[in-house]
Design a protein around this nucleic acid. Structure first.
Lengths: 231, 231
DNA sequence: CCTAAGAATTAGGTATACCTAAATTGGCGA
DNA sequence: TCGCCAATTTAGGTATACCTAATTCTTAGG
């Protein structure tokens, strides 16, 4: 009886590799280097090579791996990655909406639970939430069929001209940043006026119809994605 | 970074050993044999010996183990076992009450998730449910402090005289039995009239105020616990 | 009281998923 | 073109938690 198995047939570890390749590959699904994966997963490069060799050697492999040539998800791998992402984001939404979690705590819990919930659990929380399309951070939730609607948003830190935007999503990568972002009232869907770009790369912004401007560091601006408001 | 860790500091495996010792020790908390544990956990006896030696060698051991002398939980072990049981039963209640799971599916999902939820999750579902004292099977839910109210109930299969009882709890051990039990309307709190004990060891019973009697096999009667109704 | 059955333990393996350290490789700049 | 060097891979090791087979206890019955 091999341990470490879950509701589905995968290992927590395998799922994490797939998710990491998915994220690092970006929307172009480009090949990902071993080094980048190692960084993302906080694991030694040698461990990554090992794991990828194992994954690639499987009968219906999740990845397309080539010696010295990086990795890419196979279509099966992409399907599985999207399922894990769906789990993650549904759980986040559930924790936030139903269990009243504070936004910053949602990520870590979801990160653990995403590997262990059954299909039934997934289906039930989706139903309870009315089959939501975005999670509390503003990220798209893939459908059961593994479709994820693409969003064409940009990182706030890349904005060079003043303007008015709609907040698309916020990153859950860094809890400290996320707390600042939330405290500032920066929430997906809200209006964001970018007032000034300091030479340092930081911003003066205001949210909603408030005219109170406040300051956002470049560091924090990197964790906010926005869409230009149609004029 | 050792894998297999959870929200708390334990291994899934360790938690399962503690839970098994807890169950097998019964309310008298008697010593449990290696063989019984091996049976309960579906693991080879040698594996049990190994694990117990490791557990007993820890700085603040969860178990009191003696060579050729069986095991018993230490007070720390009992505390942890009760926490896992609390998780399990709270999750069951949550799945049943909030996510509308069918009763028979509640156990397996809880069995997996009990190891991975955080204290916060535990606290939140308990709050959502109004700090329930029993789970949908009728089992007591230990408190946060590790107290579990004892119930003096008996197994239906042990009843020798006809009489009227209150259903205390039903076992979730066997899904097939549980389905029969539920279909019969046997639910914790309901009234059960035991009409006849066949020589085979099976019963004719009726539930609630219904006078429709039906048949219960000894096998199924072993999974129902009852309390004699005060006259 | 002594022995043999059955319980428990020891010994030696497997698989997973990590690690470090030591090769190797492949592409880029001199 | 060639050699360097960072990236990658190979080699060899660790810990967990299992396994089987072989050995050693314990104790209950003769």
């Amino acid at each position: 009886m091999s341990r470490g198995r879950q509701a589905n047939g995968n290992t927590e570890s395998v799922d994490n590799y797939l998710k990491a390749i998915f994220y690092l590959g970006g929307s172009e699904e480009s090949r990902v280097t071993i080094k980048a994966l190692a960084g993302q997963l906080s694991v030694a490069p040698a461990s990554v090579t090992n794991m990828l060799q194992k994954l690639a050697a499987a009968p219906a492999p999740f990845v397309d791996y080539e010696r010295h040539g990086g990795v890419q998800l196979s279509s099966a791998g992409k399907r599985r990655a999207l399922e894990v992402v769906r789990h993650h984001r549904l759980i986040e939404t559930f924790l936030y909406e139903v269990l009243d979690y504070p936004l910053e705590e949602v990520h870590d819990e979801a990160e653990r639970l995403e590997h262990f919930i059954s299909e039934r659990f997934e289906e039930r929380i989706a139903a309870k939430l009315g089959h939501p399309k975005i999670d509390p951070h503003g990220h798209s939730i893939p459908t059961m069929e593994g479709e994820m609607t693409a969003r064409e948003s940009m990182v706030l830190a890349d904005v060079v001209e003043d303007g008015t935007f709609v907040i698309d999503s916020v990153s859950d990568r860094d809890v400290r940043n996320l707390r600042l972002i939330e405290a500032a009232g920066i929430t997906p869907g809200a209006r964001l006026r970018v007032r000034r770009k300091a030479s340092s790369g930081s911003y003066s912004v205001s949210v909603g119809r408030s005219s109170k401007a406040f300051h956002l560091s470049r560091e924090v601006a990197r964790d906010v994605r926005i869409v230009r408001l149609a004029r």
